[in-house]
């Protein structure tokens, strides 16, 4: 199959069904590769600092990719809860339908509502997916990163001596420009929803966007 044929297939598929999760997952994937690479290429930094920062950046994006996918898909699945005939017909008519008063008017209204619900299901699916992705970017990923990154880093770093060395790293010295200083680090990130943003020295810049 030539390039044009493959491209045509990809483009047609995207034209028919462009999920909001595609772009955010693509961005997170490229960020997960490029950011650690850029960090490792920085010649001014201490090798240990570079290694720590690169692993942390990679981990952040590794968390972000499945979360974007899961949040989008789960939110999209909720469309079945909303795409029901009762949500597209008059309440009184639906009450009559439920009570078994099947007059021609009620039956017609129900049939119309059923068609409307079926037609609107794909739209609702995409809209909910989009909302799921926004929710993931705003809440879920920063929350997960603030909870998971530190223990994961400690596991990766292995011995305690290395761990101590790592905690001494000042964000200022980090090659990444959007790291926060140690004052805003938080070890109790799930204390309330707002604290999700407080503690995450990684969460604020996660998710690729």
């Amino acid at each position: 199959m030539g390039i044009s044929k493959t491209l045509e297939k990809i483009c047609t598929s995207m034209g028919n069904n462009n999920k909001p999760t595609y772009v955010v997952m693509a961005i997170a994937t490229v960020k997960g590769i490029c950011r650690p690479m850029f960090t490792m290429m920085d010649k001014k930094e201490n090798p240990e600092t570079k290694k720590y920062t690169a692993i942390r950046e990679g981990l952040t994006e590794i968390i972000a990719i499945p979360v974007y996918w899961a949040c989008g898909e789960v939110a999209g699945k909720l469309s079945h809860l909303f795409a029901k005939p009762e949500n597209f017909m008059d309440k009184k008519l639906y009450a009559s339908f439920k009570a078994g008063k099947l007059t021609p008017e009620v039956v017609k209204a129900y049939e119309n509502a059923k068609v409307l619900a079926e037609n609107n299901l794909p739209k609702m699916n995409k809209n909910l997916m989009f909302m799921g992705v926004c929710g993931a970017a705003l809440f879920v990923i920063p929350a997960l990163c603030s909870v998971a990154i530190k223990p994961l880093m400690n596991k990766i770093q292995g011995n305690k001596a290395q761990k101590n060395k790592v905690t001494e790293i000042k964000p200022q010295a980090s090659p990444q420009f959007f790291g926060y200083n140690s004052q805003i680090r938080n070890n109790d990130a799930f204390r309330n929803v707002r604290s999700v943003y407080r503690g995450s020295d990684s969460g604020m810049r996660v998710g690729g966007l």
Partner: peptide
């Protein structure tokens, strides 16, 4: 019902499918 109306909005669906 109100949420369903918002979710079935064509403009919003176009936005969601527009990268």
């Amino acid at each position: 019902g109100a949420i369903s109306n918002v979710l079935s909005n064509s403009t919003l669906a176009n936005i969601a499918q527009n990268t």
